[in-house]
Amino acid sequence: MTTTRPATAYVHGVNGPVVVIPARVCAWLERHAKLNEVRIQERGADPEVDAVLVALRLAALTWRTTATGTPVAAKPEVAPDLNQWLSTGQAADRLGITDRAVRLAIQEQRLHATNVAGRWRITREDLEHFSAAKNAATAA
């Protein structure tokens, strides 16, 4: 279960501050902040930055593999394999909430979803991020 920690809980180090980033957050940053693109564009500019960006990538891949069963992030476009996308009803069943609560979370932009032909579609990865954030909020 994910718990909410203060920002200072992620900063460590005696000889200089080091930030510890959970793998789920690495996956979120990679997808929404496009860190993978930055890693590729800036490759070779600074060895320490390269090493950290690769470490973030590995942590994101590890989390995705355990959370979604695949090391590849779901594409935001509709893919031919609709099994990677969930309807609001399917998401509600997995979360143990109502379909209406899922649509409200989408409307409030707490749950990322894509509208395809008037129907909301949610990736398994986005559902895992939402679920982890929801669990962290209830644990606080």
Rank of each mutant, 00 (worst) to 15 (best):
S87T: 14
A91E: 04
R94W: 03
R39I: 08
L58Q: 04
A27G: 08
V38L: 12
R43Y: 13
G96C: 02
P17K: 06
A92G: 05
P6H: 08
T8C: 07
L29W: 07
G69H: 09
Q84M: 14
E30D: 07
A60E: 01
G16Q: 06
V19R: 11
E37T: 12
P6E: 05
W63Q: 00
L82T: 04
H32E: 10
T68I: 09
T88V: 06
A45R: 11
A45H: 10
V18R: 12
R64A: 02
L61M: 13
V78N: 05
I97S: 00
R24H: 13
A73N: 03
D99R: 08
T98M: 02
T2F: 08
T62S: 01
P17I: 02
V14H: 07
L95N: 06
R31L: 11
R43L: 15
C26S: 09
D81K: 01
A79S: 15
P17A: 10
V52F: 10
S87M: 03
G44F: 11
A51N: 10
L82I: 00
T70K: 03
N83Q: 11
V18D: 04
R24K: 09
R94K: 12
A73M: 05
G16Y: 08
V20L: 13
C26H: 02
N36T: 12
G96K: 00
P22M: 10
T88W: 04
E42L: 14
A51K: 10
T65K: 04
A92M: 06
G69W: 05
E37H: 13
A23Y: 02
L58S: 01
E42H: 12
Q90T: 06
A92P: 03
A67E: 05
V38T: 11
Y10W: 12
L104K: 13
A27M: 09
A23H: 05
L29A: 09
R57P: 00
D93H: 08
T88D: 03
T8Y: 00
D81Y: 04
V102K: 02
V52S: 07
A45F: 15
V78I: 10
T8I: 10
A23S: 09
A74R: 04
R43G: 07
T62E: 09
A79L: 14
E77D: 15
A101L: 07
V54F: 12
D46V: 05
R103V: 08
P17S: 08
R24A: 15
L104D: 14
A79E: 15
P47Q: 05
A92H: 03
R31W: 03
T2A: 15
E42W: 13
D99T: 08
V11W: 10
G16P: 04
